[in-house]
Write a protein that binds this DNA or RNA. Structure first.
Length: 239
DNA sequence: CACGTCAATTGGATGA
DNA sequence: TCATCCAATTGACGTG
């Protein structure tokens, strides 16, 4: 699970929050962590709550520190004023309500380019990309996840169009085959009727051993050919 | 203001 | 147990 990381990262960058009033002893958290984490437990503990949920905790956090919003806005404005690549990674510095981050064109295009090269990142690539884009690794990871989801969705749409067309083709084919079958049945019936009529008026010539019509003294020979309906459908609909 | 987009979150599955 | 992925969802923001 990346929950641990998520927690660290999303709550990380909490330096400013820390500065504005959650003394928190964040330094106790992990000295090795570059971006000190603001654990919800701090707020929760402070109010004797047990909730571990992120959202809950965040709302508790907001609830607990109503003044935060101003700081948030200030932070945001400050962040917006920064250079493009610097902006995104500042997004969660307040550790408060989620704010919408828009990646810059440069960041997006580089991520796209990277995605085209390899739709999945190994940790090294992720780290390098994050460093290069001045984003947190988690942000890069999330971007790739969302990007894969978008790709899959688009592919599904393409597949859907293809399947619809295929379905139409098969429906047409099915209709053609049914018609052909009906015709064949009709001709078969007609043929059997004709045969009955023919046999009732035929007799064998004792001389040449061929079938002749009774009323035809010229030995009009009946060719033993294919039934007449055979060539009506030289090509099956399946061809 | 409804709606679309997209970064971010959540929770479950899976493999090492 | 941990890292990673995915699906579903949330929420901020831009736009018509």
């Amino acid at each position: 699970m990346d929950k641990g990381i998520e927690k660290e990262e999303e709550e990380g960058g909490g330096g400013e929050v820390c500065d504005i009033g959650l003394g928190l002893g964040l330094s106790n958290y992990k000295e090795s962590i570059v971006e000190p984490s603001l654990t919800l437990g701090l707020c929760v503990d402070a109010f004797g709550l047990e909730s571990k949920g992120k959202q809950t905790s965040l709302s508790q956090w907001k609830h607990c520190f109503g003044a935060k919003r101003n700081t948030e806005i200030q932070t945001d404005e400050a962040a917006t004023a920064k250079a493009s690549f610097g902006r995104a990674s500042d997004e969660e510095e307040d550790g408060g309500a989620r704010k919408k981050l828009r990646l810059t064109k440069e960041q997006s295009s580089l991520l796209e380019k990277s995605f085209k090269e390899h739709p999945s990142l190994n940790p090294k690539q992720k780290q390098a990309l994050a460093k290069h884009l001045n984003l947190r690794p988690r942000q890069v990871e999330v971007w790739f996840q969302n990007r894969r989801a978008r790709t899959k969705f688009k592919q599904t749409e393409v597949d859907l169009v293809f399947l619809k067309k295929w379905f139409e083709t098969l429906t047409d084919e099915n209709l053609k085959l049914r018609k052909e079958l009906q015709e064949l049945k009709r001709y078969k019936f007609q043929s059997s009727v004709n045969t009955k009529i023919a046999t009732s008026t035929l007799s064998m010539c004792p001389k040449c051993q061929r079938m002749t019509g009774n009323d035809d003294g010229d030995h009009a020979v009946l060719q033993s050919s294919k039934p007449f309906f055979f060539d009506h459908f030289p090509y099956s609909a399946t061809c």
